[in-house]
Design a binder for these strands. Structure first.
Length: 383
RNA sequence: GUGGAAAUAGCUCAGUCGGUUAGAGCGCCAGAUUGUGGUCCUGGAGGUCGUGGGUUCGAUCCCCAUUUUCCACC
């Protein structure tokens, strides 16, 4: 069930009720690809950093430890000790970004595992079966994510195939949800919009998939190499074609700036590897932009990562200490940076929701973007 | 004390059969990262080639002395 609590222009804040709890949107989902946030965070930490939704990966968990094993052990929630909502990506994107020697056919994709080269086939039915075995809260339809700059001639048949794959995904998910032995018989399913940078293909595909009564709608194939303006232009023209009474999910996005812009255009859900990956590399997010804690200027800096931040990391540790940990390659260095970054993102989303509730989103967005820009200019001047 | 080996970037070492701006790896200083292969990638700074003489048009390289370090022996 999806209930809009307030709107501010096109921006909206909503309560999305799932079998594993409520999700307040706009929401940033925290990426735990293989059942753990990279950098050493567990489900216990997720509670502390205000995580609402954990996101895991069909492709990765299928290869290792296998979805059948996770099913035997009672499903992904029990396996990773997380009782909140879990969204599983369909594996579509990974097949294109990670796998070797892939061949796309009408029935699905043949490819080699990036781990051991093993030959694997995955189509819509396989993806649904794997996600059903994982028993996630939300499953994603199996789609093809074409390259950013793909030509119209490539995109057209690809999107048509993604639509046919969606029909097969729906049929298979309905079948699995009706089986006695299925762990999560109320597994939700989201469709994925594609169409590259062609607004007519995008909007027509959005209209097509909106005819299926699904639990949510995602926009895929963005933030894969196009410019920010191109991405915002697509959002400007696609979100309006997706159902207003369902959550809208922008896959793989993005920076805090990207998220503020997308929320303004009506997006509810986000996920992105950036806060975790950047955290592992010592890049941390603050209201004054991104810092690189590795930088020599923090060698003797006793301030926390972000003086305004209320997270456990910022309440306890100095930049100098965290820089030392990173330099010494102590796991704790990465862990603290990732924890802070995810808290920063989760807190940003909380502030965004509050701003929409009080209809001050435009002012809030301007304040944040000004803060990021100011810091960027200052950094440029320092060099 | 005797004999031998070595001395080149912050570290570990290449190299120059004597010839323009002496290289690598690591480290250091920065950058990059968007539905995650933590190990990947990009750029930058840094060397009077131990010191003093000599030979030579020219020496980090050859010769002599010297200092330091390491090894072996007494």
């Amino acid at each position: 069930m999806y209930e809009i609590l307030s709107t501010d222009g096109v921006a909206k804040t909503a309560k999305f009720t799932t079998p594993h709890g409520e999700i307040l949107t706009p929401c940033f989902m925290n990426v735990a690809t293989a059942g753990a946030i990279k950098g050493g965070l567990s489900a216990i930490d997720l509670k502390n950093i205000k995580t609402q939704v954990s996101l895991s990966n069909t492709y990765h968990l299928h290869l290792r430890p296998t979805d059948t094993l996770i099913r035997q052990l009672g499903g992904l929630h029990k396996f990773m000790a997380w009782d909140g909502p879990i969204l599983t990506d369909s594996g579509g994107f990974q097949v294109f970004s990670l796998a070797h020697r892939r061949k796309i056919k009408e029935e699905g994709v043949y490819f080699s595992s990036h781990i051991d080269g093993k030959k694997i086939f995955m189509g819509p039915e396989e993806s649904m079966q794997i996600q059903s075995n994982l028993a996630s809260t939300i499953a994603m339809a199996f789609d093809e994510c074409p390259p950013a700059l793909a030509e119209r001639e490539y995109i057209m048949p690809s999107v048509d195939r993604t639509t046919r794959w969606l029909e097969r995904s729906i049929k298979e998910m309905n079948r699995l949800n009706s089986l006695q032995e299925t762990i999560n018989k109320k597994q939700l399913l989201f469709a994925i919009n594609q169409g590259g940078l062609f607004v007519d293909i995008r909007s027509s595909h959005a209209n097509t998939i909106s005819n299926f009564d699904l639990d949510g709608y995602a926009i895929g194939g963005l933030a894969v190499g196009e410019t920010h303006d191109q991405m915002y232009y697509i959002l400007d023209n696609v979100v309006e074609h997706l159902p207003k009474n369902k959550p809208t999910y922008l896959m793989g996005v993005g920076t805090p700036e990207n998220i503020l812009e997308a929320v303004e255009r009506g997006v509810d859900l986000f996920d992105c590897v950036l806060p975790a990956r950047n955290g592992r590399h010592g890049h941390v997010y603050t209201n004054e932009g991104k810092r690189n804690i590795y930088n020599a200027q923090y060698e003797k800096d006793e301030l926390p990562i972000d003086v305004e931040c209320q997270c456990e990391v910022c309440r306890n540790f100095s930049r100098a200490y965290i820089r030392h940990l990173l330099k010494a390659k102590e796991i704790l260095g990465m862990r603290l940076c990732v924890m802070h970054n995810l808290y920063y993102y989760n807190n940003l989303m909380s502030e965004i929701r509050q701003a929409i509730l009080t209809r001050q989103f435009k002012e809030y967005k301007k304040m944040r973007l000004d803060g990021y820009r100011l810091a960027q200019n200052k950094n440029t001047l320092n060099r």
